[in-house]
Simulated assay, not measured.
Amino acid sequence: MRVLVTGADGFAGRHLCALLRASGDEVVEAHGPRAEGMNSNALNFDIADEAAVRTAVEKARPEGVIHLAGFASVARSHGNPARVFAVNTQGTVHLLTTLRETSPKTRVLLVSSGEVYGPVTEGTQAAETLPLVPLSPYAASKIAGELAGEQFFRSYGLPVMVARPFNHLGEGQDPTFVVPSFATQLHAIAQGKASPVLRTGNLDAIRDFSHVKDVVAAYRLLLTSGIPGQTYNVCSGTPRSIRAVLEEMLAVSGVQARIELDPARLRPSEIPSLVGDPSKLRALGWAPKATVTQALQEVLGPTLRATPGAPPRTP
């Protein structure tokens, strides 16, 4: 299948493109405008620019599209809601409109987010039928993009599916996200470049973590086998507190550090617990093949994997 991947230069996008090529698919990478010139074979454009989107899609001639491009930071979305909606919602509408007019049989996977559920009662899992409660411009913009996809499916028959991924981890994630932020601090402490203090946000929040390679495997499966008009959670269903993840990173790295709350790292609207129900995705044959521990080891890198029995690292 000839697949157009928007946001191919992002964290999940890079892993997805590698998987698609390994699976025998022809991949057309679409990168953001800031990546122009970095890959001569990629299409570079702003997803919020309608004319640029049309030009790129017409050039790509895709049989399938996985739409990852977007404003990805929940925390930073509070500071620029207009840009968030321009990219995540209007950008999605630009893409759907062009596909409807140029290749209406192209299968489309819109990648949304588990953040659309808002707070989920601790000890329960969010199913796809749960009412949506956005607590950030990011989540609201993703819901609006989902609704656009549903409307294009219902009104025009465009074969659109929606994926709602929960937290995913692995090599190459931006250090503004919580786990790579911890890893960056641990590296600085281990190298003696920072005092042995780890600055964190809310460690009591409970989240659903998966390895990024399992997440992108789900995307490919949904593009080929998902049912148009349907929405699928991409998650493990296993609750983990941020504190437990950090403690595992400390154990893996062997670094000793004092944990200190940094108010600047707290979100304006915090979600205490967010865990998904993966049953619908599993019914298509998906199952995780990697562990969160493996993902944490990849995030930390080989220089911060403690040898069993070795004494703790001190700066």
Rank of each mutant, 00 (worst) to 15 (best):
M1R: 10
M1K: 03
R2L: 03
R2F: 05
G7E: 10
A8V: 10
G13K: 11
R14D: 03
A18M: 00
G24S: 09
E29G: 00
R34G: 00
A35E: 08
A35W: 02
A52E: 09
V57S: 05
G64K: 05
G70T: 01
G70K: 02
A75N: 08
A75D: 12
N88P: 04
N88T: 09
G91P: 00
T92A: 13
T102Y: 11
S113R: 12
Y117M: 07
G123P: 00
Q125W: 05
E128A: 08
E128P: 01
L130R: 15
L135K: 12
P137M: 07
S141H: 06
P159H: 14
A163E: 09
A163C: 07
H168V: 01
H168I: 00
G170Y: 06
D174K: 08
H187M: 13
K193I: 00
A194F: 01
S195M: 14
G201T: 06
A205E: 11
I206L: 02
D208I: 06
D208Q: 11
D208A: 10
S210G: 01
V216G: 07
L223H: 02
S225I: 02
Y232S: 06
G237D: 13
S241A: 10
A244C: 02
L246I: 07
M249S: 08
I259G: 03
L261A: 04
V275P: 00
L284V: 06
W286D: 09
L296T: 05
Q297V: 08
Q297R: 15
P312A: 15
